[in-house]
């Protein structure tokens, strides 16, 4: 498979490392080579957490600026902050539910309007899917399933080329049995929302 480079950006605690592991497992099922890189440590005290996933025929395990084929953002401002990782050919999938940084939460820093964020992402990249993954996660049964909702949306876009069934199988293998059903529901809700356009 031709290399396909994907960046996931999230705020610490949103579960992007688990999402990466599910995609890694799905790659194994699909028979696609995969390498991933993540940042631990200090970054997890409420900071930004970024994973790079490279599918297919390449050897590197990180992605340079401007070279992501897919950007999956768990928080709209973080998706926009990562726009430097994209080119005009990048497909972007983002959550629209905000988690303002502390300075913004207390009224001191700037946080762009979500509509403005969507507009910029849409104009500058090859396509944007924006869904309120938090609302869908709550509907699925837990705000913790935001990550899997977004995987559902990602798979629906076809940008990755993985089948729905294989990713669901990966969810079953990688997520605690007690939480599988809820997460499969979350996946379906994300998939449907992406199919319906933006929410």
């Amino acid at each position: 498979m031709k290399p396909l480079r994907m960046i996931i950006v999230a705020v610490g605690g949103q579960g992007n490392l688990l999402a990466s592991k599910v995609l890694g497992e799905a790659a194994l099922i699909e028979g696609v080579e995969v390498r991933m890189s993540e940042i631990h440590g200090m970054a997890q005290r409420g900071g930004v957490v970024e994973s790079a996933i490279i599918f297919g025929d390449a050897s590197s395990s990180i992605i340079s600026d401007g070279e992501a084929d897919i950007l999956l953002g768990f928080e709209p401002a973080e998706t926009l902050r990562a726009i430097g990782r994209c080119s005009a050919n990048t497909r972007v999938i983002t959550n629209t539910a905000t988690l303002p940084p502390f300075t913004v939460a207390i009224g001191k820093g700037n946080y762009p309007e979500v509509n403005e964020i969507k507009q910029i992402l849409k104009e500058k990249t090859a396509g944007l899917v924006a869904i309120d993954a938090m609302a869908l996660a709550r509907k699925a049964g837990s705000p913790m399933s935001v990550n899997i909702v977004l995987l559902g949306a990602l798979i629906q876009t076809g940008a990755l080329g993985f089948s729905k069934e294989n990713v669901k199988e990966a969810i079953k293998r990688r997520i605690k049995p007690a939480l599988v059903e809820m997460n499969l529901k979350a996946f379906d809700l994300g998939f449907e929302a992406a199919a319906a356009g933006t929410v």
Binding site: V11, R45, G46, D65, A77, G84, S87, N110
Partner: peptide, 21 residues
């Protein structure tokens, strides 16, 4: 190198430094 996206008109976004829990 492939052309970079023009980010000059991207609005400022407040940083998200790590913080005590």
């Amino acid at each position: 190198p492939a052309p970079k996206i023009d980010t000059s008109d991207v609005p400022e976004i407040a940083n998200r430094p790590p913080n005590l829990c």
